[in-house]
Simulated assay, not measured.
Amino acid sequence: MVSAVFHSPLDAATGQVAAPVLARHVAPAAALAAQPVRKEPEERAPRDFGWVWLRVLPPVLGLALLVLVWELVALNSSNGFPAPAAVWQQAVTVFSDPFYSKGPNDQGVGWNVLSSLQRVALGFGLAAAVGIPAGFAIGRFGFLARMFNPLISLLRPVSPLAWLPIGLLVFKGANPAAIWTIFICSIWPMIINTAVGVQRVPSDYMNVARVLNLSEWKILTRILFPAVLPYMLTGVRLAVGTAWLVIVAAEMLTGGVGIGFWVWDEWNNLNVANIIIAIFVIGIVGLVLEFTLIRIATAFTFEEVKA
């Protein structure tokens, strides 16, 4: 900002230095600055609906492609493979009464899904109760890591169905054998991810804990748990997906009430439409479980956990 300084001619003639005559200029400037500035009304930009196309259009196109391929397979099939329209009509009939019960081996799809979820909850809960503390211990202590890493590497790739006969032999029942199979197959992702999270905790955190002479319990609750939580929740997500896959296969072999048994029973009845309905039910329930865990993980961590 440049200010103009004016001197009186009388002062120049007498040889005296004149004071700047600024009062009459400063007062109007201050008054102008004190006045509120009027903002011109901004023109509202038109709403951009591009995100709708980016989020809605691709899934719709994917489903449309699936239905198209399905229809082509049904038209060219000589074995009576049901078309999408026929499966839709059968689904309306099935879901009109999903909780009927006509005996132990003839129940609606709702009861079958709830029975499978109950087994998953028991097996998964036991796996979390054992796997998460084991992961903290293995990641925290190098001796335990060297001790259990070979066992984990040996047992983790074993097929889930290979554990089912062991469960039948030990527990003498189909239901506990299925829960055992879920437990043994769900525990590995939680152990591995939790241990990796503990091992990746910055060494500065542990150095501060040593300087402050913190107890092992405070190190676990104040340092390790908040830092390992994203890794632990990732292991939980992987474990729940594995548990839902395993229960379908286990119930096909053990029988009883469950979505896996329902698939096998409909195959014995040569009802392919109900098998396709069961496939979609299994996928939707798995998607709901995955989405629920993603929301929980996002709520309890500072970084966004994506699928």
Score class of each variant (00 low, 15 high):
A64K: 03
P59R: 05
V56D: 03
K39C: 06
V52M: 15
L54T: 14
R55D: 00
V56W: 10
E43D: 03
E43Q: 14
R47G: 15
E43S: 12
V60G: 09
P59F: 01
R38G: 07
V56P: 00
E43H: 06
P46M: 14
L63D: 01
P36H: 05
L68D: 10
P59D: 00
K39R: 10
G50W: 12
V56E: 03
E40T: 01
V37K: 09
P58I: 06
L57F: 11
L54K: 05
L63R: 04
P36D: 06
V52D: 02
Q35N: 00
P59V: 01
V67E: 00
K39P: 00
A64G: 14
V56A: 06
P46C: 08
A33L: 12
L65H: 02
L54M: 11
V60W: 12
L63T: 07
A34T: 08
K39G: 03
V60L: 12
Q35L: 14
A45H: 13
P58D: 06
A31K: 10
L54A: 12
R47D: 03
V56C: 09
V60K: 01
W51L: 11
D48C: 12
A45T: 11
W51E: 05
A31S: 07
K39L: 12
R44S: 14
R38I: 11
R44G: 14
L66H: 01
W53V: 03
P59C: 05
W51D: 04
P46V: 00
L57N: 02
A45V: 00
W53F: 05
L66W: 11
G62R: 02
G50I: 02
W51V: 08
Q35K: 02
E42D: 10
L57Y: 06
G50L: 11
W51T: 07
Q35V: 01
V67G: 07
F49T: 07
R44T: 04
L61V: 15
V56Y: 04
V37R: 09
A33C: 11
L57S: 10
P41R: 15
P41S: 06
P41C: 04
G50K: 09
A34N: 06
E43F: 00
Q35E: 06
A45C: 07
A64H: 02
L32C: 00
L32D: 04
G50T: 06
L54G: 12
F49R: 13
P46H: 08
L32V: 13
E42I: 13
A33K: 04
P58L: 05
L63M: 11
L61P: 00
A33V: 05
E43M: 13
P59M: 12
P41I: 11
F49C: 02
L57W: 08
P46T: 02
A64D: 03
P59N: 04
W51Q: 08
A31G: 07
G50Q: 06
L32N: 12
L61C: 15
A64L: 10
G62S: 13
K39S: 10
A33T: 07
E42L: 09
V37H: 03
E43A: 13
